[in-house]
Amino acid sequence: MGPEGGGDALLRLEGVSKRYRRSGLLALDDVSIWVGAGERVGLMGPSGSGKSTLACIAAGLLSPNAGHVRFDGVERSGGGRLPRGRSAAVRRAWLGMQMVFQDPEASFIPTMRLGDAVFEGARYLPRFKGADKDRLVREALEAVELPGSYAERFPYELSGGECQRAAIARAVIGRPKLLLCDEATSALDVTVQAKVMALLGRVHRELGTAFLFIGHNPALVGGFCDRIYRIGGGRITEELEACERP
């Protein structure tokens, strides 16, 4: 578990609220959560409870109307963006967070070959400048139990489970500190879901990656996570220890 109260949290959202302008919907209302380094934190709630909105705000894909988002010691400005004038080092810090979405195929550009897409997760990191891209992509694909030859394929040529494995390869190729998983297994059948969960467990063990794991299945979330937040109606309703570990 991370520090008490999240004082030195890797990711912290504090007092975050979000109202969608067009619909007027208050999706999040004064939400505060945190994730410690190397910790697996679950976010569980029914459809429409604000889970995906929270994930997108954490990742900087949406901007909150109020509140603060801080990752690895750096706070984002309004609009979910890093302030202009920030150093390259600060911007690189935010590249230490990656996201895996519910619909893996939709998260890829359909005309981009898988190898190029997977390498996007590392392209902007200085340590990969001049690196052997083909080798890195092959190793990333093989790490998620896909043949290296899949680098030449397009996303639509893969099954749903294969495409989600490729999405995980893209997310972890740069060895992020935090992985956001937004219903990342809910579109998969039970057998494939179990394989993907085993893969995420291996990522955690081997890379020490922290997780914000979002889902609605209590057994799945409880079996993977160290702590769980329950959300309903845009508010955190409960925080509890997971009773099961993989």
Rank of each mutant, 00 (worst) to 15 (best):
L61Y: 15
I173F: 10
A58L: 09
V190I: 13
Y156P: 00
R230L: 14
L11G: 07
R170W: 05
L95E: 14
A55K: 03
R123S: 08
A117W: 05
I228H: 06
Q98Y: 12
G38F: 13
I168H: 03
P176H: 14
K195W: 11
S32M: 06
C243N: 09
R227A: 13
A184Y: 04
M97W: 12
K177L: 12
E142F: 09
G233H: 08
C56L: 15
I228E: 05
A187T: 03
R202H: 08
A184T: 09
P126Y: 14
L220T: 05
P246R: 05
E241L: 14
G48C: 10
C225V: 00
R40H: 09
E39H: 08
E75P: 01
N65G: 12
L207H: 09
I214R: 08
V137F: 04
L54W: 08
C163I: 00
L82R: 03
C181K: 06
F119H: 01
G161Y: 14
A219H: 08
T191L: 14
L82N: 02
L178Q: 05
T53H: 02
R12L: 10
G160D: 12
Y150S: 05
L178H: 09
G80N: 10
G208A: 10
G148V: 06
Y150M: 04
L240G: 09
A143R: 12
D72G: 13
T209A: 15
H204S: 03
V90C: 13
D103E: 14
P83Y: 12
P155A: 12
A140I: 02
L180D: 03
A9H: 07
S49K: 02
R19N: 00
G208C: 10
G50Y: 04
P126S: 11
C56H: 14
V31F: 08
R70W: 15
P246I: 07
I173W: 02
D134L: 14
L158C: 07
R135A: 15
G24N: 00
V196K: 03
A184W: 11
D103I: 04
L136F: 14
G42A: 04
L61W: 15
N65T: 06
G50Q: 04
L179P: 07
P110M: 09
G50T: 02
M99R: 07
M99Y: 10
L10T: 01
R84E: 15
G73M: 13
A93F: 12
C225S: 11
V144E: 04
V172K: 05
P147M: 06
A143L: 03
P83K: 06
G15K: 10
R12T: 05
L199T: 02
R202N: 06
G215L: 08
L43P: 00
G79Q: 04
G223C: 08
L212P: 00
K129V: 02
A187M: 11
S47E: 06
A117G: 04
K177M: 13
V74D: 11
H204Q: 07
L10I: 01
G121E: 08
E14D: 11
D116F: 06
W34M: 02
G7C: 06
A88G: 06
G232S: 13
A27V: 01
Y156A: 06
